[in-house]
């Protein structure tokens, strides 16, 4: 078996492991909220916000301030999603692949602390 075949087989093995892992744990999402709970954003790694929740009180912030707050919270939600995906896959892939995840924009980082397990289910 030459080097190319070995590499292709390794890629296929990792792909299978990741697919099985995702099927077992469910999709990965990140979430972040502003400190007063005015804005909450949920998003998948590398994707736009899937849900933007705004409290009635947040409307008192004014349009410009609310828009800026959504951008800030969405950025933290994206970082949270990236960190959760990295942590989820780091158990399955070798260190080189783990570093590659960081290089393409999914660093390990730190997941949001107030985020429960409802969006990232553990192994069943």
């Amino acid at each position: 078996m030459d080097e190319t075949n070995r590499a292709a087989r390794r890629v296929a093995d990792v792909e299978t492991q990741v697919s099985e892992h995702i099927a077992r744990t469910g999709p990965v999402f990140g979430r972040a909220s502003s400190s007063d709970g005015a804005v909450t954003v949920v998003c998948a790694p590398g994707a736009p916000p899937q849900e933007v929740r705004i409290s009635p009180a947040a409307l008192n912030m004014g349009a410009a301030a609310l828009g800026d707050e959504i951008v800030r919270v969405a950025e933290r939600a994206a970082e949270d999603a990236a960190a959760r995906m990295h942590q989820s896959l780091a158990r399955l892939v070798d260190p080189a692949t783990s570093r590659a995840l960081t290089e393409i924009g999914f660093p390990a980082g730190a997941a949001e602390e107030d985020f429960g397990s409802s969006y990232l289910r553990g192994p069943r």
Partner: peptide
């Protein structure tokens, strides 16, 4: 990659 750069809301 879905990162929001700006959100402009009219009043």
């Amino acid at each position: 990659v879905g990162a929001l750069k700006s959100v402009r809301l009219l009043p």
